[in-house]
Design a binder for these strands. Structure first.
Lengths: 204, 204
DNA sequence: GTCTATAGAGTGATAGAC
DNA sequence: GTCTATCACTCTATAGAC
């Protein structure tokens, strides 16, 4: 079991935000230390290498997924398909509140580090998986509203795809439109799936 | 007008591949020089800073977009909607031939550098725009097969979203499935749009 | 245009006192 | 657990000969 300490938490919190905003390579330990109000000795007491700090951040992101995203969304929306769009709305609100500057804390690192650190890549994939599993659960709850032959795992991945692709374009263009275009078309797709499921029912 | 020279081209080519694979920050000039068989003096004769080399690479990507992607796809597919999927197939083939290791040369850099270099970010956005314009042209050619109220600009952005999101997940998981799930669902979406367009026609 | 040599700053990481 | 001091290295970029 990992020890919790105020210093360790501060490092994870501060570095997590910096890595998110500027990337892993572009963030120096010096910058993390000065912003967290911690000195080098303490950092190396908790983490053997910079990469271990990153791994701890990703573990934290995995832990926080439920509390920060899915629980609030589930509290706000009861209908499973609305929950899917509630999740997308959550990211949109964040995008808007940061003037499209930050994007996704996992996606950003995924593209920067996928080829460099095998262990990091694996953990990033794990966070994506956890995210998809949650969305997949919503889709299973909406099973009866969807055509029988739709692969729910693939559809959950598709929702993540729409989110990540939209965040990327919105962040690059500094405009919400590409993200919104993704949501609009995904909504239209879900509407079509529901229509198609209803006509399946009628036939049976 | 920019001067063309063998050395300059070799630097753009070599650095382009390295930035694509490992990212901008993680690639040192030393590595580029040794792999291109060029020395530092030559590099700084053509480019004032590392960032200028990157900008030249992005200009080249923009120039090559047609020749490397859209022209071959148009030669292979005559139907406009099949051309959209032909483009996706092009990226899939590349993903497969690199064991899902490389992803998109623009998307990778977009997420690494969006917040760090304003001029770079702008040029990345420009390449995305050019890509979408091409896809949008296909969609306009398929106008009669799509519902009247569909926003073609947004739909073109959606195609890019599906591609980038799929590449990101495929590269992170080192599996083609998430990319394929994106294509499968996008195909189903287009089928639904075409069905819906036909029923519009019947009503009028 | 290309070369070598090197400046100058910053990096991740370590050692050892407290 | 936290501190300061510092090592060893790498990086971008420059200068000046050829």
């Amino acid at each position: 079991m990992t020890v919790r300490s105020r210093t360790r938490d501060a490092l994870i919190e501060t570095a997590g935000t910096l890595f998110w905003r500027q990337g892993y390579g572009a963030t120096s330990l010096t910058e993390i230390l000065s912003q967290a109000g911690v000195t080098g000795g303490s950092l190396y007491y908790f983490f053997r290498r910079k990469e271990d700090l990153l791994l701890a951040i990703l573990d934290r992101r995995l832990e926080d997924l439920d509390l920060q995203i899915f629980v609030p969304v589930e509290a706000a929306e009861a209908d499973p398909i609305e929950r899917v769009f509630g999740v997308l709305g959550f990211y949109r609100a964040f995008l808007e509140s940061t003037q499209c500057e930050m994007g996704c804390p996992i996606g950003n690192l995924a593209l920067e580090l996928a080829d460099l650190h095998p262990e990091v890549r694996q953990k990033l994939a794990q966070v994506f998986d956890a995210w998809c599993s949650r969305v997949r659960k919503y889709l299973e709850d909406a099973r009866s509203q969807l055509p029988h032959d739709v692969d729910l795992e693939g559809l959950a991945q598709f929702v993540l795809t729409v989110m990540e692709g939209g965040l990327m374009q919105a962040r690059t263009a500094r405009r919400l439109e590409p993200f919104d275009a993704g949501v609009t078309n995904l909504r239209r797709y879900f509407d079509a799936l529901q229509v198609s499921a209803r006509s399946e029912d009628r036939r049976s």
